[in-house]
Amino acid sequence: MTDPSDLPYRPCAGVMLIDAQGRAFVGQRLDTTLEAWQMPQGGIDPGEDALAAALRELGEETGVRPEHVELIAEAPTELFYDLPPELVGKVWKGKWRGQRQRWFLFRFTGTDADIDIATPHPEFRAWRWSDPADLPAMIVPFKKALYEQVLTAFAPHLG
């Protein structure tokens, strides 16, 4: 078995999308039966800018187009999480030990009708707006500390 510490982190972009009331978009993943909700996020392609990846992932996962968001802030540093040992070697073809993520905070300027999770490659089976303070309790446990770091990074812009 590969030692997880020998594996690199997968480069990713994450999006905290907030509505006019300051609530955050969360989606319930299609690929799990857990009651886990998460914010949009995904891999950064080789040579792709993190902000471009964030906007692309947002569109791919939520149907939200760039003209319906405005950038508020970017987390000042990359944030990391490790996969639990039982998932290392099973997800992402066993190439990564976890993710290193660039997080962006966007204000959603559209309407709920501009959100469509029935995308060509759907990731979510349901979505809703949630109080940002509730996010760490909604995510899979191994990402809880990451979500707390995201909230700390964006605290000056929330609530």
Rank of each mutant, 00 (worst) to 15 (best):
Phe25Cys: 11
Ile18Gly: 01
Ser130Asp: 12
Thr2Trp: 04
Gly27Pro: 01
Pro156Cys: 06
Trp103Tyr: 07
Val88Glu: 09
Ala52Val: 06
Pro46His: 08
Pro156Ile: 05
Asp116Leu: 02
Pro84Gly: 06
Pro84Phe: 04
Trp96Pro: 04
Leu30Phe: 07
Trp92Cys: 12
Glu60Asp: 05
Met138Pro: 07
Ala126Val: 03
Ala75Glu: 02
Gly89Ala: 14
Ala113Tyr: 05
Thr62Lys: 01
Ala153Tyr: 00
Glu35Phe: 09
Leu146Thr: 05
Leu135Ile: 07
Phe106Trp: 05
Arg10Thr: 02
Pro66Met: 13
Gly42His: 09
Tyr81Arg: 10
Arg100Ala: 15
Asp82Phe: 11
Ala13Lys: 02
Pro40Glu: 02
Gly47Ser: 08
Pro132Glu: 01
Leu71Arg: 06
Ala24Cys: 09
Ala52Gly: 05
Leu151Arg: 10
Thr77Leu: 12
Leu30Gln: 13
Tyr9Leu: 14
Phe142Glu: 06
Leu151His: 06
Pro156Lys: 07
Arg29Gln: 13
Thr32Trp: 11
Leu146Val: 02
Ser130Ala: 15
Leu83Lys: 11
Glu86Met: 09
Gly14Met: 03
Glu86Gly: 09
Asp131Lys: 04
Phe80Met: 11
Pro136Asp: 04
Ala118Asn: 15
Pro76Val: 01
Arg65Asn: 01
Leu34Asp: 14
Lys144Trp: 04
Gly47Ile: 06
Ala73Pro: 03
Trp127Ser: 00
Phe106Val: 06
Pro84Ser: 10
Asp134Ser: 15
Gly89Val: 14
Ala145Trp: 02
Leu135Pro: 05
Arg56Gly: 00
Lys144Gly: 07
His68Glu: 01
Met138Lys: 03
Asp3Ala: 14
